[in-house]
Design a binder for these strands. Structure first.
Length: 236
DNA sequence: CACCAGGCAAGTA
DNA sequence: TACTTGCATGGT
């Protein structure tokens, strides 16, 4: 297997920007994007070899450092358990033991099973079938799964299924608040709508944009500090 | 030692 | 509706 997905090129995003209507908000969001992109470079997310692995990672990384998720996923792989059928046919306690390094393992074992149940019941256990289904319908199905909230749903849609669904996470909130672009009154769907209404619905752009927020957050925007020191967004 | 990490659901008032 | 709390490992 070569590349799961066509790589997102700078020229493609430049093209999108040129074709995109120049509302003030649209121009502003693109300017944010380029500041991050020029500083950090392309991120080429999500880490993971298959759509199913990406979906599993999205659930395991809930409020958890990615490093711990990597351990859990490598254990699943090593025990030949990283498939819908393997997860479904295994006792929940056994699954919990395998994903232990990811934390919240009892909760997450149940969540993984809930996701696999949806996959089996509505999409014949096929991530491909899921990807072929209507975006909004799939999003509603995902949000209906106990243990999948908006961020996890959008991460699966965008990174596992290749659908243009913008992902908001804690870093996005923190960075935009620190730069006085939003205040604490903004919630998940308000912010997601703001991005999606003012940017072209493009998987490549949404993918890089969210991944760049994470890169910037990890590097510059630490919790419990007044500002994001040296963040590229601080520059004019 | 305290705090944090690519959330979410359930409980409380 | 708007807080608060439980869930848990591993890194800094």
């Amino acid at each position: 297997m070569k590349q799961r997905q066509k790589k997102c090129k700078r020229t493609h995003i430049e093209e999108l920007e040129a074709r995109s209507g120049s509302s003030g908000s649209s121009e502003f969001l693109f300017s944010l994007f380029w500041k991050l992109y020029d500083f950090f470079g392309p991120q080429y997310w999500w880490p993971g070899e298959t759509p199913f692995e990406i979906a599993v990672g999205a659930i395991l990384t809930q409020n958890t450092a990615w490093k711990n998720v990597e351990k859990a996923i490598s254990i699943l792989k090593a025990s030949n358990s990283l498939s819908p059928s393997a997860i479904w046919n295994m006792p929940e306690k056994e699954l919990a033991a395998l994903i232990r390094p990811a934390g919240y393992y009892n909760i997450k074992a149940g969540r993984l099973r809930n996701f696999v149940a949806l996959l089996q019941e509505q999409f014949q256990g096929s991530m491909t079938r899921m990807a072929e289904s209507d975006d909004m319908v799939v999003r509603e199905y995902l949000l209906g799964v106990r243990g999948i909230g908006p961020e996890t749903a959008d991460s699966i849609l965008l990174y596992a299924l290749g659908k243009p669904s913008f992902v908001i996470d804690a870093y996005t909130f923190r960075i935009l608040e620190r730069h006085d672009i939003i205040d604490e009154s903004w919630d998940y769907h308000m912010l997601r709508d703001f991005f999606m209404e003012n940017l072209p619905g493009d998987v490549c752009l949404f993918n890089e944009f969210h991944a760049l927020f994470v890169a910037a957050g990890k590097t510059f925007c630490k919790p419990r500090r007044p500002a994001c020191d040296n963040c590229p967004l601080s520059e004019k």
